[in-house]
Computed example of a mutant assay.
Amino acid sequence: MYARRGPRLLAPLLTLALFATACAAGDSGGGDAPAGGAGFPLTVRNCGTDVTFDAPPERIALLESAPVTILHGLGVLDRAVLRAGAFPEEYYDAGTNAAIAGIESLGEDLDESGHLQISRETIIAQEPELVLGLPDGITREGLAEVGINALVQPVYCPDGVDATTFDDVYEQIELYGRIFGRTDEAATLAAGLRERETAVEESVEGRPERTAAVLYPTVGGGSGYAYGNRSMAHPQLAAAGFTNVFGDVDERVFEVTTEQLVAADPDVLVLLHVDGEPDDVKDALVTLPGADTLRAVRDDEILVQLFNFTEPPTPLSMTGLERIADRFGAGR
């Protein structure tokens, strides 16, 4: 029924465009259980590949923004020795933004389709032990040849993923806790997020049933993309008390036509973007032919927010959940 677009093409565009490959959701907490007092060497599964750590990484290259909140929560953000790409201040608190500003930046060079432009040689020259995110042209194998490990977000596996839930957030935190030897901090971080998730779910109990869609509009032409049940958007809407009108689509993200959107006619719309002005993102949707017939457009029930507030599954997804509940009147 719906046109499909593979995650390999969409992931770089939609996640601050910082990586083009990823790993399976089932891999996020996998791997051998740590043995011995220190728990190292530690082997985990990522994108179907074994990644072995002889010790907690001390030098991190951040080639995507999504892991920042986990690293901060574990108290290891100071191990990031370089970064590349965009790290919007809106995502983080003042302390985290100050920490990010102190990390050497290799630039925000993105091509016209939003891909991070950086060479393997540039990364290697900084001698990181762990790279988070894989931009175009950078492979896990190429880094492994010089002894550098790489991890990417489970939701972006080119082989596809199962339905996403908030458990994916907690599993990613647990995985990082093991890798960095911060399991207690990981448990504390996850517990706090679970409390926040429960608070939102309780706040929307008894609210009249409403529908929603999460979209990535194409600024400059085209109807854009929608998120199915394999995206973090799906459990996020459910926790906020909404039914995802595209919840029957077994895709993370897919190309959607205006006609399909009009037929679904959701009560509210959440529009995601990675750069540009929110008003331009909103205009890209509301000016589409026929969009004025959408009840969400007529009632101005639209929220525009940065992409990592939804995807991939991280603590930022919890903030995004709270933003959705606040914007659309939790409990009303």
Rank of each mutant, 00 (worst) to 15 (best):
L10M: 15
L18P: 06
T21C: 09
A22C: 12
A24L: 03
A25W: 01
A25F: 08
G26I: 11
S28W: 08
G29C: 10
G29H: 14
D32F: 03
G36E: 12
G37T: 10
G37R: 12
A38F: 09
G39E: 01
P41H: 14
P41S: 13
R45I: 13
R45A: 12
N46W: 01
T49H: 13
T49Q: 15
D50K: 14
F53D: 02
P56C: 11
P57E: 08
E58I: 00
A61I: 02
L62D: 03
P67G: 13
V68K: 00
I70V: 14
L74R: 08
D78M: 03
D78H: 13
D78C: 01
A80N: 04
V81F: 08
V81Q: 09
L82K: 06
D93P: 05
A94V: 08
A101F: 12
A101G: 14
A101S: 15
S105E: 13
G107Y: 11
S113K: 13
S113G: 13
G114P: 07
G114L: 09
H115A: 12
H115G: 04
I118M: 10
I123W: 11
E127S: 04
E127F: 07
E129I: 05
V131Q: 09
V131W: 04
L134H: 07
G137S: 08
G137M: 01
I138L: 09
T139Y: 09
R140Q: 15
E141H: 05
L143N: 03
E145R: 15
V146G: 14
G160L: 00
V161A: 08
V161C: 13
D167E: 15
D167A: 12
E174R: 15
G177S: 07
R178D: 12
G181N: 14
R182V: 02
T188V: 09
A191M: 13
R196F: 05
E197H: 10
E201C: 00
V204W: 04
R210P: 05
T211Y: 08
T211S: 15
A213Y: 12
A213C: 08
A213V: 07
V214R: 02
L215G: 04
Y216T: 01
T218K: 14
G220W: 02
A226G: 13
A226H: 09
N229W: 01
R230S: 00
M232I: 13
M232R: 03
H234V: 08
Q236G: 04
A239F: 01
A240M: 10
N244Q: 09
V249D: 00
E251Q: 15
R252I: 05
F254C: 07
E255P: 01
L261A: 03
A264L: 10
P266Y: 06
L269P: 00
L271Y: 01
L272G: 04
L272E: 00
L272D: 03
D280K: 03
V281L: 05
V281S: 02
K282Y: 11
L285P: 06
T287Y: 07
T287W: 02
P289I: 10
P289W: 12
G290F: 07
G290Q: 02
V297H: 13
E301Y: 06
L306C: 07
F307C: 05
N308T: 14
F309P: 00
T310F: 03
T314A: 05
M318W: 02
M318F: 10
A330N: 11
A330R: 15
G331N: 11
